[in-house]
């Protein structure tokens, strides 16, 4: 279902004012907020509650997949072309553990990268919310809210250098 929501973009040139606004916003729960900054800000990570990243599930499933392939692939190859080495049985789980371990790391790391790209929606064609200023000298945030919420939030941005409100279609 698609509904129309207000989109508020606030731009700050001053770091302390920006953090002050974030601090006030952290009182609200369930806020659809996106923060932009030209540098990593540890205060923001501490102030805004974050959901645990979904990337870790990519890492986990990649690692499990790596273990499965790490065992399946050597077992398939030794059975398909049997060569007895050093008098050992063909399917030597002891030795294949090493291959499974290495592939666990390889696939885990690879899937982590994929998960990162997926969750950051990269590479993307349109940068709808982005403003080039956020990579230069400004801090900014974008909040999607309905009318009632917006009225409550409005006073917080009194110190912002620029506030733009428009509407956007949101998937609910």
């Amino acid at each position: 279902m698609i509904s129309v929501k207000n989109r508020l973009k606030a731009v700050y040139n001053d770091y302390t004012k920006f953090i002050k606004a974030i601090d006030k916003l952290s009182g609200f729960v369930d806020l659809d907020i996106e923060v932009f900054s030209p540098m990593p800000l540890h205060e923001v990570f501490e102030l805004l509650p974050q959901k645990p990243s979904g990337v870790r599930w990519f890492t986990f499933s990649g690692a499990i997949l790596g273990i499965i392939i790490g065992f399946a692939f050597p077992i398939y190859t030794v059975l398909d072309w049997p060569l007895i080495t050093g008098g050992k049985p063909l399917v030597t789980v002891q030795a294949f553990i090493i291959i499974a371990f290495e592939l666990m790391i390889l696939f885990g790391a690879g899937f982590t990268l994929l998960g990162l790209l997926f969750h950051a929606k990269l590479p993307r064609q349109s940068l709808a919310n982005y403003d080039p200023k956020f990579s230069e000298n400004s801090f900014g945030m974008i909040i999607k809210a309905d009318d009632d919420e917006l009225e409550k939030l409005r006073p917080i941005f009194s110190e912002a250098d620029d506030v733009v409100v428009d509407t956007v279609e949101v998937d609910v």
Binding site: G86, K88, Q94, I98
Partner: peptide, 15 residues
Amino acid sequence: MSLVWSQFLVIWYGN
């Protein structure tokens, strides 16, 4: 565990 395994695997293979 990787050290325990390095120990085990080499001796087990060499026999």
